[in-house]
């Protein structure tokens, strides 16, 4: 099949950036979207042009490295998917596709379709964990966790941190990402001692990064490759509300 690709090209953070149009013939329907871009890049290199830079790694939809916006939809039109597992057979011959990077103030541009997601790192480092010193854990079966609770935690733990939620949020909010982390640990008994502090720390870090505010558009849930539910956002709101106004610190003393 034949495709017209309109791709955002930007040399680095200081460059203004522009769209460039490429025609690609002989796209096999078996290719993944990234393999299609590989083919384009091979052609560009052979022609002496610079290839399109895009982030990718595992190509199995689990590492969360890849991602860009195809015709206005993060990760493309197939639900619960990443661009590495999006196959060309779901497109039509002659399609015109516009490829843009995640656009958000908190994700500065790096190059072409690559953005800097270190804001996510800073949020997680602020407290998105359980402080468990190596070697101090009791026997694994001494903490019983009801199956449905463990499954609920897993539903949120599946987040791959790709940033599609921010990219597809009309407000540029990162609440699904943060909510997922808070809900994952909040559902587990091990996560309770630090629960209030965690909510405060993560929300504060998120605020500082300049993400937008959630107004419940729900497009984050719709484009999330792992289908993380906005229930996570509700959990985050509740934990934050309680932590900030009622419990204060975990003992209710400090703040």
């Amino acid at each position: 099949m034949k495709l017209t690709l309109e791709i955002w090209r930007q040399k680095d953070a200081n460059d203004k950036g522009h769209f460039e149009t490429y025609e690609l013939d002989n796209v096999s329907s078996h290719m993944s979207f990234l393999e299609m871009l590989d083919v384009l890049n091979q052609e560009l290199i052979e022609k002496g042009e610079e290839p399109v830079a895009f982030d990718h790694d595992c190509r199995e939809a689990i590492c969360g490295t890849c991602g860009f916006v195809i015709n206005g939809v993060a990760h493309g039109h197939m639900k619960r998917n990443t661009v590495c597992q999006l196959h060309m057979r779901t497109f039509n011959d002659g399609d015109h596709l516009v490829l843009e990077p995640w656009r958000a103030e908190a994700f500065p541009m790096v190059r072409d379709l690559i953005v800097d997601r270190s804001a996510f790192e800073r949020i997680q480092r602020a407290g998105g964990y359980i402080s468990a010193r190596t070697g101090s854990a009791p026997d694994a079966n001494s903490i019983l966790i009801p199956k449905d609770q463990a499954e609920a935690a897993m539903d949120f733990a599946e987040c791959i941190g790709c940033g599609a939620c921010v990219a597809s949020c009309p407000n540029g909010a990162a609440m699904l990402f943060v909510g997922a982390r808070i809900a994952h640990l909040g559902f587990l008994p091990q996560g309770q001692p630090e629960r209030a502090e965690r909510a405060k720390a993560l929300v504060a870090a998120m605020e500082q990064e300049g993400f937008g505010a959630c107004t419940n558009y729900t497009s984050c849930e719709a484009t999330c490759p792992k289908g993380i539910s906005i229930v996570g956002i509700a959990k985050m709101n509740k934990d934050y509300f309680n932590a900030k106004l009622f419990t204060g610190g975990n003992l209710g003393g400090k703040d």
Binding site: E6, F19, V69, N71, G72, V73, A74, H77, K79, V98, E100, R103, A104, E105, A106, S168, C169, P170, N171, G172, A173, G210, F211, G212, A213, T215, N216, Y217, T218, S219, E221, A222, T223
Partner: peptide, 27 residues
Amino acid sequence: QVWWRSRKARPVKYKVFNPPDVDYAAK
């Protein structure tokens, strides 16, 4: 204030933007 914050969160707009399943009322 919330609206203003969100406006600032995406200074460069998308050329094409069609987020799926957007709640119409939210818009």
